[in-house]
Simulated scan of single mutants.
Amino acid sequence: MAPGGYAWWYVDALSDDGDSGLTLIAFVGSVFSPYYAWQRRRAPGGAADATDHCAINIALYGRGGKRWAMTERGRAALARDATTLRVGPSALRWRNGALEAEIDEVTVPIPSRVRGRLRVEPLAVMTQPYALDAGGVHHWQPIAPCARIDVEFEHPPHVWRGHAYVDHNRGDAPLERHFARWDWSRATLPGGDVVVLYDVERRDGTPLSLALRFDAAGRVAGFSPPPPAALPTTGWRIARGTRSDAGHPARVRATLEDTPFYARSLVEMRLHGEPATAVHESLSLDRFTAPIVQAMLPFRMPRRAR
Rank of each mutant, 00 (worst) to 15 (best):
Y10K: 13
L14Y: 07
L14G: 11
D17W: 04
T23V: 15
L24Q: 14
A26V: 10
V28G: 05
S30G: 02
V31K: 03
S33W: 01
Y36N: 07
G46I: 07
A47N: 11
A59R: 09
L60V: 04
G65P: 09
A69D: 09
M70P: 00
R73E: 10
A79I: 12
R80E: 11
T83F: 13
T83M: 06
R86F: 05
S90I: 05
R93S: 08
L99S: 00
A101E: 08
E102D: 09
E105Y: 09
E105R: 03
I110G: 04
R113W: 03
L118Q: 08
L123D: 05
T127Y: 14
T127N: 13
P129G: 08
G135N: 12
G136R: 02
P142V: 04
I143R: 15
A144H: 12
P145E: 00
P145S: 04
C146V: 14
F153L: 05
E154H: 05
R161G: 13
D167T: 15
R177T: 13
H178E: 03
R181Y: 12
W182Y: 11
W184Q: 12
T188M: 11
P190T: 07
G192A: 10
D193E: 14
V194Y: 10
D199T: 09
R203T: 13
R203M: 09
L208D: 01
G218S: 04
A221Y: 00
P225L: 14
P225T: 04
P225W: 02
P225G: 11
A229R: 01
A230V: 02
L231I: 03
T234C: 09
G235I: 10
W236R: 06
T242C: 14
S244A: 06
S244G: 02
A246I: 12
D258C: 13
H272I: 01
H272E: 14
A276R: 00
S284W: 13
L285K: 06
A290L: 07
M301Y: 08
A305S: 08
R306I: 15
